[in-house]
Amino acid sequence: MNNLIQNYKIILEELINTCSHIKTKPQIRVPKLSDLELVALNITAEYMSINSELQLFRYISKTELEQKIERSVYNRRKRKLFFYLEEIRRVLSAKFSDFTNVFIVDSTPLEICKISRANRSGICSTENIRPEFGYCAAQKTRYFGYKLHAVCDKNGVFHSFDFSPANVHDINYLKDIKENFKNCLLIGDRGYISEKLRVDLFNYSNIKLSVPMRKNQHEFVSFSKVKSKIRKRIETAISQLSGQFLLHINLAKTFEGLATRITSKITSFTMIQYLNFFIFKRSLNKIKINLS
Rank of each mutant, 00 (worst) to 15 (best):
K288Q: 03
S160D: 13
T63K: 07
C113R: 01
V102A: 01
L197M: 14
L110H: 03
M213P: 01
M271R: 08
A137R: 07
I234Y: 03
M48C: 12
P26W: 04
F278P: 11
G243I: 13
D35S: 14
V91P: 05
A137K: 09
I187H: 06
N51I: 11
S20R: 04
K23Y: 09
H21R: 07
F280W: 02
E87I: 00
A166W: 02
S61V: 02
I238F: 15
L241V: 14
D170G: 08
L92Y: 04
A138R: 13
Y47R: 15
V30K: 15
E66S: 14
F96T: 09
K23A: 10
F220I: 06
E87F: 03
M271T: 14
M48H: 12
L12D: 05
T236R: 10
I112G: 03
Y274S: 08
E235Y: 11
I171Y: 01
S107H: 02
A166I: 01
R282C: 03
P31V: 10
L81T: 01
I193M: 03
S61N: 12
E14L: 11
R130E: 12
I104A: 10
K114F: 00
S125W: 00
S107A: 11
T44I: 10
L174D: 02
S242N: 15
Y173D: 03
T18F: 00
F269M: 11
P131G: 04
D200W: 02
D106C: 06
S160N: 11
S194V: 06
S228I: 02
F57S: 05
I193R: 11
K80F: 07
L65R: 05
S52G: 06
I287D: 04
N250I: 06
S268E: 06
V226Y: 11
R71A: 05
S224N: 04
I16A: 01
I207C: 03
L246C: 13
S283R: 10
K281P: 05
D106M: 02
N206Y: 00
F255C: 08
M48L: 15
I129E: 14
I115Q: 01
P109T: 02
I11D: 04
R142T: 13
I171W: 01
Q240H: 13
I112Y: 12
E219F: 10
I123H: 08
L284S: 02
L41S: 13
E127K: 10
K32E: 08
T236S: 10
L41G: 14
E87N: 13
F57C: 11
F161G: 04
M1F: 10
K215T: 02
Q55C: 06
G134V: 06
E14P: 08
D98N: 15
K227T: 00
D176M: 06
R282Y: 04
T108H: 08
K80Q: 15
N180V: 05
R29Y: 07
S264T: 05
S52N: 15
R89T: 06
P165E: 15
G257I: 09
E111Q: 04
P212F: 00
A237C: 12
T141I: 13
L241E: 08
E46K: 15
R231S: 05
K114R: 14
L36K: 11
D35I: 07
N167W: 05
K182N: 14
L241M: 14
N17T: 06
S97I: 09
I123F: 10
K175P: 00
N101S: 13
S292K: 13
S52Q: 13
